[in-house]
Simulated assay, not measured.
Amino acid sequence: MLICPICQSALTEHENSVCCIFQHSFDRARQGYFNLLPVQHKKSRAPGDNLAMVQARRDFLSAGYYAPAAQRLATLMQERQPQRWLDIGCGEGYYSAHIAQAIPNSQGYALDISRDAVKQACKRDAKTTWLVASMARLPLASNSCQAITSIFSPIDWAEAERVLAPGGAVLRIGPHSDHLLELREKLYDKVYHYDDSKHLQHVPVNMQLIHSETLRFKLTLDEAQARENLLAMTPHGWRASTEKRQAVINHPLTTTVAIRYDWIEKMEDK
Rank of each mutant, 00 (worst) to 15 (best):
residue 96 S to K: 08
residue 228 E to G: 01
residue 254 T to K: 00
residue 211 H to Q: 15
residue 158 A to L: 15
residue 122 C to W: 06
residue 154 P to T: 03
residue 155 I to G: 02
residue 69 A to R: 00
residue 132 V to W: 11
residue 225 Q to H: 13
residue 228 E to N: 11
residue 193 H to F: 13
residue 104 P to R: 09
residue 59 D to A: 14
residue 203 V to K: 01
residue 31 Q to R: 14
residue 238 W to A: 04
residue 238 W to D: 02
residue 230 L to N: 04
residue 206 N to G: 00
residue 219 L to W: 06
residue 194 Y to C: 04
residue 193 H to S: 14
residue 248 V to C: 07
residue 221 L to K: 07
residue 257 V to S: 06
residue 113 I to F: 12
residue 45 R to I: 11
residue 85 W to P: 08
residue 177 S to T: 14
residue 42 K to E: 08
residue 176 H to D: 15
residue 131 L to K: 12
residue 237 G to K: 06
residue 53 M to K: 13
residue 106 S to I: 06
residue 217 F to D: 01
residue 5 P to T: 09
residue 182 E to K: 00
residue 188 Y to V: 11
residue 155 I to P: 01
residue 134 S to I: 10
residue 195 D to C: 06
residue 231 L to S: 05
residue 1 M to D: 04
residue 33 Y to V: 09
residue 240 A to S: 14
residue 252 P to W: 05
residue 79 E to I: 03
residue 199 H to L: 04
residue 255 T to E: 01
residue 263 W to T: 02
residue 243 E to C: 02
residue 119 K to H: 09
residue 59 D to I: 05
residue 91 G to P: 04
residue 76 L to R: 10
residue 239 R to K: 15
residue 18 V to H: 05
residue 186 K to P: 02
residue 3 I to Q: 05
residue 112 D to A: 08
residue 173 I to G: 00
residue 37 L to T: 12
residue 21 I to D: 06
residue 123 K to T: 15
residue 103 I to G: 02
residue 144 S to M: 02
residue 92 E to L: 00
residue 37 L to G: 10
residue 19 C to R: 14
residue 227 R to G: 01
residue 44 S to K: 12
residue 232 A to S: 12
residue 193 H to P: 07
residue 119 K to W: 05
residue 112 D to I: 14
residue 35 N to I: 08
residue 185 E to A: 05
residue 10 A to R: 11
residue 206 N to Q: 08
residue 178 D to H: 13
residue 48 G to E: 09
residue 261 Y to F: 13
residue 41 H to N: 13
residue 180 L to V: 01
residue 79 E to R: 11
residue 119 K to G: 15
residue 130 W to D: 12
residue 5 P to I: 10
residue 243 E to A: 10
residue 264 I to F: 00
residue 93 G to T: 05
residue 43 K to C: 03
residue 164 L to F: 00
residue 50 N to A: 11
residue 202 H to Q: 15
residue 62 S to G: 07
residue 173 I to T: 01
residue 249 I to G: 03
residue 118 V to K: 12
residue 182 E to M: 00
residue 239 R to F: 03
residue 213 E to S: 15
residue 258 A to E: 09
residue 218 K to C: 00
residue 16 N to I: 03
residue 200 L to P: 08
residue 127 K to F: 08
residue 146 Q to C: 02
residue 158 A to M: 08
residue 11 L to K: 04
residue 130 W to I: 09
residue 104 P to C: 07
residue 66 Y to G: 02
residue 159 E to C: 07
residue 68 P to W: 02
residue 85 W to H: 05
residue 54 V to M: 13
residue 17 S to P: 05
residue 112 D to M: 14
residue 257 V to E: 01
residue 257 V to I: 15
residue 128 T to F: 11
residue 26 F to I: 09
residue 101 Q to R: 14
residue 160 A to T: 04
residue 219 L to N: 06
residue 35 N to C: 09
residue 123 K to R: 15
residue 224 A to Q: 13
residue 252 P to Y: 09
residue 253 L to I: 07
residue 265 E to D: 00
residue 250 N to Q: 06
residue 242 T to Q: 11
residue 269 D to S: 12
residue 43 K to R: 09
residue 225 Q to S: 13
residue 69 A to G: 03
residue 168 G to P: 07
residue 201 Q to E: 13
residue 129 T to G: 08
residue 151 I to W: 04
residue 262 D to N: 08
